[in-house]
Design a protein around this nucleic acid. Structure first.
Lengths: 201, 201
DNA sequence: GGGGTCAGTGTGACTTTATCACTGAACGGA
DNA sequence: TCCGTTCAGTGATAAAGTCACACTGACCCC
C-alpha cells in the first residue's frame, strides 16, 4: 500500500493524511495519461510500471523525451500544478502502471512541512533536467546508427515494436529506421519481422 | 540592493538574514561561472546581465542549452546543491552580470520557511524543463536555415559573432553556418564581415 | 613597411540523414 | 476469401554533417 519512497519518510500525521487523500490508480498499456494542452489534477507518484513522455513538434514529428518508472515523480505535473499552464508533452503508458495521485492541497502541505518530500521533488527535477540535457546532445550530435544499436542493446530480445514507434523513440523518420535496420540485418546483427526485432548475441 | 523578485517576498526576518549572508558578485563577459564536473558553492540569483549555459558532448561539439537573464535562478546549481553531483554543463557570461549568491544554509532555510521562495524555485525549474523540451524538438526536427534566420531576426543588427560561436548557438557545425550565411548573403538578406553579420531590414 | 602568425572564413568532395512518393507484404475482420 | 488497413522496403532527391584544405584579414614584431 502506497509503496513510494517519498511517502515513507513522512512523519506519522502526514502519512495518515496521505493515506486518506491519496488515491491509487491503475493504467493499462497504451493509456494516455495526459495530452499536450491539458491541465493536471494532481501529482502522480509512480508505484510500478513504465510511462513514456513524448512531445510532438510543429512539424508533426514526435520524440520520446524520457521514461518514468517505479518510484518516479511526474515532474511535468509539478510544473502544471505550480504554474497552472497546460502540459506541453503527452504521457503514454508502456507497461501497466500504478500511480498514487497526490491532490493539490496535500501537495502544498507536504512541500510546506516535509524537507524530505521537498528533497525528493527537487532530485526528481534535477534528474529530468539531466535527462533532457543529455538528450539534446544526443539528438544534436550523435549518429543515428549508433543510437539505434544502443537502443536495441538496452532491451532484451525479441523486441516488439514497429519501425514507426522506434523512429519516435529516437526522434527520426520511419524510413531512416527501416533502412538502418535492414543494414543491420544484412550484417547479421538482427533479424526482422513485422512488428518485431530479434537482436543476435 | 538585492533586487531579485524572489527575495522581495520574504518576511522581514528572513530578508534580514538574506541581506547578511548573501553576497553579490559581478562577472565580466566571457567569465566562466562553472564548468562541467565542478561542484557548486551556492545558488546564484541573477540580478542583471545574461549568461549562457552550454554543454559539450562526447563528440566534442557544443550546444547552447538556454540563457539566464535578470531575475532568473540557476536551476543547475539547485540540482548540484541538493544532490551533490557536479555540473553537467558550463555557464559563460554573455553580458556583464550581477548575481546574488545564496549560501547552502540559507537556501535550506528559505525552502523550509517561505512558500513564495519555493514557488519561485519550482517555476524556474518548470521553465527550464520547458526550454529544454522545446530545444529537443527544435534540434530534432526543424530545418537549420529556418532556425538560423530566426536566430538572426531575434537580435539587433549588427551582430558581433563568429560562425563558430553561431554554430554552438544552434548546435551544428561551423561549415554549415558559413554556407547558410553565404546563401543568405547571395539573397541579399545579410551582409557578412569577419566576426560580424548585418541583417537587412 | 614587410613578413609571419593565427583566428576566421570559403568551398569541394563525400557521407549521413531527412523527405517525398510509391510499392508490396502481412494481418485482421466481415 | 476478399478487402481494407497497417507495416515495411526502396528509389530519388534535398538537407545537413564531416573532412580536408585554401584563402583572407587582423595583428604583432622586427
Amino acid at each position: 500500500m502506497l509503496q513510494h519512497s517519498i511517502l515513507e519518510t513522512l512523519p506519522r500525521e502526514l502519512q495518515k493524511e496521505a493515506l486518506e487523500s491519496i488515491q491509487v490508480m491503475r493504467f493499462p498499456p497504451g493509456k494516455i495519461l495526459f495530452r499536450a494542452g491539458e491541465h493536471c489534477q494532481g501529482l502522480p507518484l509512480m508505484l510500478s510500471g513504465a510511462i513514456k513522455v513524448q512531445m510532438t513538434g510543429v512539424s508533426g514529428n514526435s520524440i520520446v523525451l524520457y521514461r518514468m518508472g517505479a518510484d518516479d515523480i511526474c515532474t511535468l505535473s509539478i510544473g502544471c500544478l505550480m504554474t497552472g499552464y497546460g502540459y506541453r508533452a503527452e504521457a503514454i503508458v508502456d507497461e501497466e502502471a500504478e500511480a498514487a495521485m497526490v491532490p493539490r492541497g496535500l501537495f502544498d502541505r507536504l512541500m510546506d512541512q516535509s524537507a524530505a518530500f521537498r528533497l525528493g521533488i527537487m532530485e526528481s527535477y534535477g534528474r529530468r533536467l539531466d535527462d533532457l540535457m543529455l538528450l539534446v546532445e544526443e539528438v544534436a550530435f550523435r549518429r543515428m546508427d549508433e543510437r539505434l544499436e544502443e537502443w536495441l542493446q538496452a532491451r532484451k530480445s525479441p523486441i516488439h515494436i514497429t519501425h514507426q514507434e522506434l523512429a519516435v523513440e529516437l526522434g527520426t523518420a520511419r524510413e531512416v529506421v527501416s533502412r538502418l535496420l535492414k543494414e543491420l540485418e544484412r550484417k547479421g546483427r538482427v533479424s526482422l519481422a513485422r512488428g518485431r526485432i530479434d537482436v543476435s548475441g
